[in-house]
Design a protein around this nucleic acid. Structure first.
Lengths: 189, 189
DNA sequence: ACAAAAATAGACAAAATGTTCATTAATATA
DNA sequence: TATATTAATGAACATTTTGTCTATTTTTGT
């Protein structure tokens, strides 16, 4: 049961205006009034759908997160980890949603977006590695995946910022090497 | 040329009230009115020192950042990297400022705090490794340190969140191993 | 074509913001 | 310790944003 077309239109316009505003304004500087003017939507209409700016932001974030979760899901069905494929898929997804990722990971971004991303990532890894075998859930392993998933998100955000970005293939390979061959292989001795 | 005692008092009270509020309120929910009531400071006085809530936050962040930079600085004078010592110092610092770190790294935290932290960290590593020798500044090396510094900050934030936290010594050792022995050593084969 | 639902304009009270000013209190320092 | 200086206060005020509400118009699904 799909939403009314008008509703979809309204939400789309508000979302687009929001992302546009977020690129040169801090979150706290974006007022509902501003947003509605930019989207050319009646202010009352905004309240028909969202409680406040942060609810809108949360919604956008949740949608993106869901899409990403669906993307990762097939990888969990598999017995062995194919990191390259996974990273390739992830980097591809970020370019497809570049504006959003830049907004959420950029200086006006949201720390909870990062946290969610990290959680998603970590859960995926743990779910594969531990297939039913929970005795391996050591504290150290947890920390290792905290490190990896944070590292990965950090990589994505600096990759998105670079003006002459490395290719998706290369990024996937590089990330894969960092995680599985280890960092020392990449560092000067 | 130190500030007037009254000014110091005002800023201190506002800072304390802010951190207290941040522990159970989202940043956007904290109003200047709230804050001043909690700090028992005249609202007009707030405007004597800060433009808005975000300026206050930025100030607190900058102060903390500066303190941290001073802490890291001695390590850059050294020829060889002693990661354990560095990490030990850093983890100790975070526990000393636990409330602040939790506030800034927690769900109501600020992404730019994370970014600053990462930058500080990465610059430190690069400055040591490249002592004058800039030909090693490859893109891959940059990415490796993006990964490491993001990973480290991720580790700190999940460490601060855990209700039964690992000791500082153990965390320093663990982090050091991740970076220099590589992650595979910690993962199940 | 028509009933249902959504968006609109515009009005409104309530709240927070940001500024001002005369007055009081605290401070540095001579 | 007296005094000039500076900071904080209380209180008022206009401005802006928020949030809610209506009657009306427009768009939609069927």
């Amino acid at each position: 049961m799909k939403q009314d077309r008008r509703t979809r239109r309204t939400k789309k316009l508000l979302t687009e205006a929001f992302i546009e505003l977020l690129s040169d304004k801090k979150l706290n500087e974006i007022t509902i009034k501003d947003l509605c003017e930019k989207a050319d939507i009646n202010r009352g209409t905004f309240y028909l759908h969202y409680q406040d700016i942060y609810a809108l932001k949360q919604q956008i974030q949740t949608d993106l997160y869901e899409e990403l979760a669906n993307l990762i899901n097939p990888f969990t069905k598999v017995k062995t980890i194919n990191s390259y494929e996974l990273f390739y898929t992830l980097f591809t997804f970020t370019t497809k949603n570049e504006a959003l990722f830049q907004a959420f990971l950029g200086p006006n971004g949201d720390i909870s977006f990062l946290t969610d991303l990290k959680t998603l990532f970590k859960d995926y890894y743990l779910s594969i590695l531990l297939q039913g075998d929970t005795r391996n859930t050591t504290q150290n392993l947890e920390y290792a995946y905290d490190f990896i998933s944070a590292g990965f998100t950090g990589l994505v955000s600096s990759w998105l910022e670079s003006e002459n970005p490395t290719s998706i293939e290369e990024m996937a390979r590089l990330t894969s090497r960092m995680v599985f061959d280890g960092l020392p292989a990449l560092l000067p001795e």
